[in-house]
Amino acid sequence: MLAKRIIPCLDVRDGRVVKGVNFVDLRDAGDPVEAGLRYSEEGADELVFLDITASSDRREIVGEMVGRVADSINIPFTVGGGLRSLDDIRDILRAGADKVSINTSALERPELVSEAARRFGAQCIVVAVDARREPRSNGSRPEWKAYTHGGRVRTERDAVEWAVEVARRGAGEILLTSMDADGTRDGYDLELTRRIAESLDIPVIASGGAGNLDHLVDAIVDGRASAVLAASIFHFRQYSIGQAKDHLRRKGVVVR
């Protein structure tokens, strides 16, 4: 059986992990390679590195980091953040990333998804969809809009329709973040996750809101997600990846 995946997400800036990962026994918890290796040893199925480097030499910094990760970690990893063009995507894949994740640049120019999928293969193009609920008038169906720039800028795109469009354009996966749930630790937005997962025949990675292990189960069972992404519950050692997998297994979810 194809396993459901657990994916820790690491935020990196200037080649360093930010929002501190609490591995007390790591020599250098800010090193993306050490943190990534620890997660892979615990049983993480993939890793996502979200780069927020702002400096002008970010290309070199990120390329160097991606290369070091590729040299040491033997599970797949995705790199996202600030990728604007086919050349940016090419550089990250050449440096050794298995997949790239794009959001703002795709919403600004949707053809980028088609072009990247055609050139590099659908399997390595992940489109990150950051969705936020619209205020509801009485009795209307819930609606979500897609956001750019790390969730700061609202677009007029309906998030569900946008996900359907990028899948049609050749995206290999959707990394779906609920801006409403993100940071709440109250659980994933299951309604949003299920709506998008059932509208697509590519995998959906649920993100935003994980606060306990039942939330992971809910995203997969009720939300129909193929994978769950989480940051803080793993970084702060609330749970290990191994505990998360044991819990999913007990609930009947196939995990590695």
Partner: peptide, 8 residues
């Protein structure tokens, strides 16, 4: 779902 992607 194609591609077959993930751990099997």
């Amino acid at each position: 779902h194609v591609p077959h992607m993930g751990w099997n």
